[in-house]
Amino acid sequence: MAIKKFAVACYDDEAVLFPAIDKVRNSGYKLHDVYTPFPVHGLDQAMGLKETDLHIAGFIYGITGTSTAVGFMSWIFTKDWPINFGGKPHFSLPAFIPITFELTVLFAAVGMVLTFCYLNQIMPGVKKHVFHPRQTDDTFVVAIELSEHTSEAEVLAFLKSTGANETNVQVAESEWWYGRFDKKEAYELS
């Protein structure tokens, strides 16, 4: 949760966007994020994002579901409330398998959705700063994080040279926050 200064560049075309991202990364500026109106293949490699750990989280949720189901059912049917079902043994693993499977899927699915939302900072009732209103429509938006030592004019000139058709500098909250409205202080600072 920090208020930061960003240089923002807008592009019209993927064909311009990819070389521009390469140039930004090569010249040593800190790429904050790229916002596109639709999923662009190969963008994560171009941005140098690392492989997600979401599937490891999924595995852990799944294992939790499996052990919850097996543990809970075997405790119920052997210790807490043993019932004779058609002469089957109290600990009947084959009968537990379908529920174990379902609970594994349920835990993994729900857990992964919530983790996905957390990692992408999306959730009902939270808000993120929008750099450009047309980033969900027809514009590719690149945000570069600036430090106090960076010269704004130099960055904007550089972004123009990469083919951006619109550039500006914004001071904004870099993370998500609870609530529906933009943070006042971000605008007061700018």
């Binding site: 058609g86 002469g87 084959p94 009968a95 398998i97 379908p98």
Partner: peptide, 12 residues
């Protein structure tokens, strides 16, 4: 494999 096994095991 399990679907075939479990129905037979359960119905007995």
């Amino acid at each position: 494999w399990f679907s075939q096994f479990m129905l037979i095991w359960y119905a007995n």
